[in-house]
Design a protein around this nucleic acid. Structure first.
Length: 136
DNA sequence: GCCAACGTTGGC
DNA sequence: GCCAACGTTGGC
């Protein structure tokens, strides 16, 4: 099983809306690196849901319920989307500032490639962030 | 195939 | 609102 991190601006699509919707088709990705990550996702994989621009924190975990399918919102090019459902909310959001100060997480893709909207998270990073969300 | 210019994203 | 970082584009 693999872990991921997906980013969204709350003003565009928030975790709250996601929970309300019960599931969503993650589309609109127009970046090759992000697309490759989407294509690598398997059913059952978990992804952190990160709020960019506002909040700047990981608020919950999404689960892949359907692997990549063509993104019909793309007028040209070969792009894909993935279906997610909310898995669970974090007890406490883990902020970007917290991640930055944690040595174990300094090399996370989200830190190094802040502009990548879909990035990979290692097992260790996933566990660490979960732990941080449990303790304030 | 290189590289400068430009556009976009996202943190501050 | 600014600016750094990155991706993309286009001229050569």
């Amino acid at each position: 099983m693999n872990y991921w991190l997906i980013k969204s601006e709350p003003s565009a699509y928030s975790w709250e809306q996601f929970v309300k919707d019960k599931q969503t088709f993650w589309s609109g990705v127009r970046n090759y690196a992000a697309r490759n990550n989407l294509k690598a996702m398997k059913k059952g994989d978990l992804a952190f849901f990160y709020h960019s621009n506002e909040g700047l924190c990981i608020v919950g975990i999404a689960k892949v319920i359907k692997e990549h399918t063509p993104d019909k919102t793309a007028k040209e090019g070969e792009w894909y989307g993935v279906d997610f459902a909310p898995f669970k909310a974090l007890k406490n959001p883990v902020t970007l500032a917290q991640i930055k100060t944690e040595p174990l997480l300094k090399n996370m893709e989200i830190i190094k490639l802040s502009r990548l909207s879909v990035s990979k998270v290692s097992d260790k990073e996933f566990d660490k962030i979960l732990l941080m969300s449990e303790t304030k």
